Simulated scan of single mutants.
Amino acid sequence: MTKTLEAFLHEGLASLKEQGLYNTIDVLEAHNGPIIKINGRELINLASNNYLGFANRDELKAADQAATQKWGVGAGAVRPINGTLQIHQDLEAKIAEFKGTEAAIAFQSGFNCNMGAISAVMTKNDAILSDELNHASIIDGCRLSGAKIIRIKHQDMADLEEKAKAATESGLYEKVMYITDGVFSMDGDVANLPEAVKIAEKYQLITYVDDAHGSGVMGHGKGTVKHFGLQDKIDFQMGTLSKAIGVVGGYVAGTQELIDWLKVRGRPFLFSTSLTPGSVAACITALDLIMAHPEYVDQLWENADYFKAKLKAVGFKVAKSETPITPVILGDEQLTQKFSQALVANGVYAKPIVFPTVPLGTGRIRNMPSATHTKAMLDEAVTVYEKVGRELGII
Rank of each mutant, 00 (worst) to 15 (best):
L91K: 00
L193S: 00
D26E: 13
L270Q: 07
H10W: 03
Q204L: 04
T374W: 02
T4E: 01
D181K: 09
R41L: 04
Q89L: 14
V197L: 04
V344S: 01
H220V: 08
V328G: 00
V121A: 08
L262W: 09
N367D: 00
N49S: 15
S279K: 10
G40E: 09
F98T: 03
I259S: 04
K338C: 09
T240G: 14
L378V: 02
R390C: 11
L335F: 12
G20H: 01
R143K: 11
Y208W: 11
S15P: 01
G146F: 05
F355A: 14
L311K: 08
N82A: 14
A66T: 06
E333Q: 12
I87S: 00
I150N: 08
I81D: 10
Q65G: 05
S119M: 06
A147Q: 02
T362Y: 04
A75S: 14
M377Y: 02
K310Y: 02
A47Q: 08
V264P: 10
S15A: 11
V190D: 10
P268C: 05
K17E: 12
R151S: 07
V252T: 15
G363E: 07
T101N: 00
F271G: 11
K226Q: 07
E174N: 15
L129P: 04
L287W: 04
I36C: 06
V318Q: 15
I35N: 06
R41F: 12
N56S: 14
Y22A: 11
L392T: 14
A96Q: 05
E6H: 06
V280G: 03
G278L: 00
K233A: 13
V217E: 02
I365A: 01
L360N: 10
D159P: 09
I44F: 06
K222M: 14
I353G: 00
H220T: 01
A106R: 12
M291V: 07
Q231V: 04
I329W: 10
L9I: 12
T168H: 06
V354E: 01
A93D: 03
A30D: 15
E29T: 10
D126N: 10
L160V: 04
H154A: 07
D159I: 05
K226Y: 05
N23D: 04
G171I: 09
K163M: 10
G76Y: 01
V78T: 11
T240M: 12
K61R: 14
M291P: 05
G216F: 13
L343I: 09
F307E: 00
V247P: 04
K317N: 11
D211R: 06
N367F: 15
T273M: 11
L52G: 07
L262G: 12
L60T: 12
H227D: 07
V358Q: 05
A104E: 12
H227V: 06
E201V: 04
G219W: 04
K226S: 06
A66S: 13
Q69E: 15
Q237M: 09
E92G: 03
L129H: 11
D210I: 03
E102N: 00
P34R: 05
N346T: 04
T2A: 07
A93L: 07
L129W: 11
